[in-house]
Design a protein around this nucleic acid. Structure first.
Lengths: 193, 193
DNA sequence: CGCGACGTTGATTTGCCTCAACGATTGTGG
DNA sequence: CCACAATCGTTGAGGCAAATCAACGTCGCG
């Protein structure tokens, strides 16, 4: 079953009973999106968190000049959402888009709350994920402040080996904060070393 | 009492009984640091969260070239810690330093856990803080990707009006990710507008 | 007083961007 | 199933934002 992947992810942090697993399964729904499909657009309210089963999702915003800036890339086993909108219930600034054909599990915010109330271990699971996400984001800020684009790319490759070769490099450039042109030159330079 | 400030911060999110407040108070200790004092150094394990009563704290790391990079600035009513080290129990990369004479409340990780067990509302309080911190950090990443230094400075001023004029601008430059020299020119340019 | 931290200003350099042109690949509709 | 458009990656030339290096004035403080 597709939901097994989610159960495995949860099992890494907390242990659920069979009934709890069943209740969880009853609250998530499976969906498949084609490449380029938008799961969320700017100014929408993000009601769902998405757990990627297969494929890749990207969250980004678009600045005044129309340039995309990638906040996160999520592949198999990762959650993605517009956390600001999801938590505050207000319209957000992020788009969430399928980079390739992608299958996800959707969890509605209200259902997540039900799960929290009924199964405190689920609450703990998401708490750990949020903590890890905070730590990763702080590290990314420090990297942005202290490393060159080249060093950031090397860290990205080390940290996300699965993503590195699967997404068009235009998106990695956008994640790192450089233009596709510069990223192309940079990569070639690294190869000759 | 100094701890009133913390109780007020908590009261914004959850309601504690008198006994719960008393228990909380028994677990935090007050400390005062002189300007330039280090509360935490690189490679140390961060055992405490610090709640600023009066003064300003700064968390930063130092890169290979010896340059400081500011992760956060915390003034009255804010918490600060090396979240990675605090949560993982491993040595961290951050320094925490008093920018001016500063009075804080210290909360040991073990005591925080005691509070979580005894008072679920405290758990909820910190959870909200962590969520807000995650959102703020994600916004900062997006700002770093999509805005010029000038625009980032304007947002910083809007978001942290209390800090803006209180800390040496060398630290704001470091927070924004520019050199003190460039920050100086930038500020002058903004004044002439 | 004198030292150290901070801020400013100037000259020069550089990392990265912009604009433009051009293959290669892909997928999609006719 | 092919033709065409769209997307992606690469390369070149030129430009700009921000860094670097250096010098100097100011202030607070031991």
């Amino acid at each position: 079953m597709l939901v097994d992947l989610l159960l495995k992810s949860i099992a890494k942090h907390v242990v659920l009973t069979e009934e709890e697993q069943a209740f969880l399964c009853s609250k998530v729904s499976q969906k498949t999106y084609k490449a380029k499909a938008l799961l969320l657009e700017e100014n929408e309210i993000c009601h769902h968190s998405f757990f990627v089963i297969e494929g890749i999702l990207q969250s980004y915003n678009i600045d005044e000049q129309g340039v995309k800036h990638t906040l996160s890339l999520a592949t198999t086993g990762w959650w993605i959402a517009d956390m600001y909108s999801f938590l505050s219930g207000k319209p957000g600034q992020l788009y969430i888009e399928a980079i390739e054909n992608t299958t996800v599990l959707c969890l509605h915010k209200d259902d997540q709350q039900l799960l929290f109330d009924r199964i405190p271990k689920i609450d703990r699971y998401f708490r750990i994920l949020i903590e890890n996400s905070l730590i990763a984001n702080q590290q990314r800020i420090i990297d942005n402040l202290s490393l060159t684009a080249e060093e950031r790319y090397e860290r990205f490759c080390a940290k996300h080996p699965t993503i590195k070769d699967k997404v068009p490099q235009i998106h990695i450039a956008s994640y790192l904060g450089v233009t596709p042109e510069f990223f192309s030159r940079m990569k070639r330079k690294l190869l000759t070393k």
